[in-house]
Amino acid sequence: MNIFRLAGDMTHLASVLVLLLKIHTIKSCAGVSLKTQELYALVFATRYLDIVTDFISVYNTVMKLIFLGSSFSIVWYIRHHRVVRRSYDKDQDTFRHYLLMIPCMLLALFVHEKFTFKEVMWTFSLYLEAVAILPQLVLLQRTRNIDNLTGQYVFLLGAYRGLYIFNWIYRYFTEPHFVHWITWIAGVVQTLLYADFFYYYFESWKNNVRLQLPA
């Protein structure tokens, strides 16, 4: 494992912890898109089907369990927790899941490396992860005041994706490899979706003002 991959995984872990911290201690999910969280739960459920069939490493298995557990518990908190669910911006979080899920499933059925159930599900998870942040970005744009934790959550997620690109570049030059167009293109598209957010995030940080995305 190289330093970019480890930093990427740790940033991903940090993003989940920031979100759980906000939900668990402040008991608020204001500004958090349930749609995005449900899509991530689906991403992990379809990608980690190999958790029961292939053993890669203890690290790999533990991280998979953390991402599965955290994504489903975040969804549970927002939907069912007595206090947390009241802070959910239901009227603002209107992005329709199926507009992302159906095209991703169709694309996975036609563009994949192997036509097996596990492989198509894995490819679907890559496509879906690439666009799963969209409901969250739309919600941020509609929210006039983005709180620090929500801003940091999205920033850490974007940083994780960017670090994975460096990891692929590093692996390309240092390891025997196959060409993984699907993984790479989906990863680059996903990172590009954060470009606009990053711009405003750094502007607000530089000028020391509250983060606000233009409508």
Binding site: R5, I56, W122, E175, F178
Partner: peptide, 10 residues
Amino acid sequence: EEEYDVKDEL
């Protein structure tokens, strides 16, 4: 079975 390196990623 071919080696499939990105599968060890998360």
